[in-house]
C-alpha cells in the first residue's frame, strides 16, 4: 500500500522533471537555432530576392485581415470612447483616446496576434512539411544550407513585415475612429485632430509603438520558424507544431508587451 503511494509520488516527480528538462532542452535548441539563423543573415541579405518573395506571402497576404481588423477596432474604440467621454462633456478628447490606445497598445499587440495566427502558423506548417517530406535533408545533401535558402528569408520577411503591418493597423484604426467619431457621432473635426496632435508624441508614443512591433515581429517569426524546424516529422507533429506556434507566440507577445510597457511608460 505504502509502496504504491510512494511509487505514484515518485512517478509524478519524475514526470515534472522530464517536463522541465524537455522545456529547457527546447529553449536551448531554440537559442542555438536563433544563432544559426543570425549567422546566416549576411548570406540572406546577399540574395534578397528570396526574402522579397517571402514578404509577399508573409506580409502582403496578411494585409487584408490587418486592415479590416484595424478599421473595426478603431470604429469600436470611437463608439465606446464617445459614450464614456460624453458623460464628462469631453468628447473632443476622442481623438486622443483612439490614437493613444492604438499607437501604444492595440496596434502592435493585436496586429502581432493576428500575424501569429495568419502568417506564423503558415510558416510553421510550410517548414514542418518540408522537414516531414525530407526536403530540408535533401538540401543539406546537395550542400545547400537550408538556413540561408529557406529559414533565413522567411525569418527576415516576417521581421520586416510586422512593423509595417502594425503601422498600417494603427493608421487605419485612427481613420476608423475618425469616421465614427466625426462622421457619425458629430465630434468636432478640428478638436479631434488638434487634441490628438497635441497629446501624441513622436518619440514617446509612436517610436515606442514601432519598437514594440519590431520586438513582437522578431519573437513571433522566431517562434514560428523554430517550431516548423523542430517539428516531429509526421502529420500529427505538424499539426501540433502549428498549434504551438499560435499559442506560444501569442503568450510571448502578451508577456513581452507587459515588460515593454513597464519599461517604456514608467
Amino acid at each position: 500500500m505504502m509502496n504504491a503511494v510512494l511509487a505514484g509520488v515518485i512517478g509524478f516527480i519524475r514526470y515534472l522533471g522530464r517536463f522541465g528538462l524537455g522545456f529547457f532542452e527546447r529553449l536551448g535548441r531554440a537559442h542555438l537555432f536563433l544563432i544559426s539563423l543570425l549567422l546566416a543573415l549576411p548570406a540572406v541579405l546577399a540574395r534578397f530576392r528570396l526574402t522579397v518573395v517571402q514578404m509577399y506571402s508573409v506580409g502582403f497576404l496578411s494585409l487584408v485581415i490587418i486592415v479590416v481588423s484595424g478599421l473595426f477596432v478603431g470604429m469600436v474604440l470611437g463608439l465606446q470612447g464617445y459614450n464614456t467621454l460624453v458623460d464628462f462633456g469631453a468628447e473632443e478628447s476622442l481623438g486622443v483616446l483612439v490614437a493613444l490606445s492604438l499607437v501604444r497598445e492595440l496596434g502592435p499587440v493585436v496586429s502581432a496576434l493576428l500575424f501569429a495566427g495568419r502568417a506564423g502558423s503558415a510558416l510553421t506548417a510550410e517548414i514542418g512539411l518540408m522537414k516531414a517530406t525530407e526536403q530540408l535533408s535533401a538540401m543539406e545533401m546537395m550542400a545547400v544550407d537550408p538556413f540561408r535558402r529557406v529559414l533565413g528569408p522567411r525569418f527576415l520577411a516576417g521581421f520586416i513585415s510586422m512593423p509595417l503591418l502594425a503601422a498600417m493597423f494603427s493608421a487605419v484604426g485612427i481613420i476608423g475612429g475618425y469616421f465614427v467619431g466625426v462622421g457619425l457621432l458629430g465630434v468636432d473635426t478640428g478638436a479631434f485632430w488638434a487634441q490628438m496632435q497635441s497629446a501624441v508624441g513622436v518619440r514617446e508614443d509612436i517610436m515606442n509603438g514601432v519598437i514594440k512591433s519590431i520586438v513582437f515581429g522578431f519573437a513571433v517569426t522566431w517562434i514560428a520558424v523554430f517550431e516548423g524546424y523542430d517539428t516531429i516529422p509526421t502529420s500529427e507533429g505538424i499539426s501540433r507544431a502549428t498549434t504551438r506556434t499560435v499559442v506560444n507566440s501569442s503568450l510571448a507577445v502578451l508577456g513581452l508587451d507587459f515588460i515593454l510597457t513597464a519599461l517604456m511608460f514608467n
Binding site: 494585409l63 498600417m168 493608421a171 496632435q197
Partner: peptide, 26 residues
C-alpha cells in the same frame, strides 16, 4: 506587390508621425 506593401507601410508610419506635428490633418 511587395514594393507596394512596403510603401503602404511607410505611408502609414508617415501618417502617424504627421498626426503629431501640425502639418497633418484635413
Amino acid at each position: 506587390i511587395v514594393g507596394i506593401f512596403v510603401l503602404l507601410g511607410l505611408a502609414a508610419l508617415l501618417m502617424l508621425s504627421m498626426k503629431v506635428s501640425n502639418i497633418g490633418g484635413p
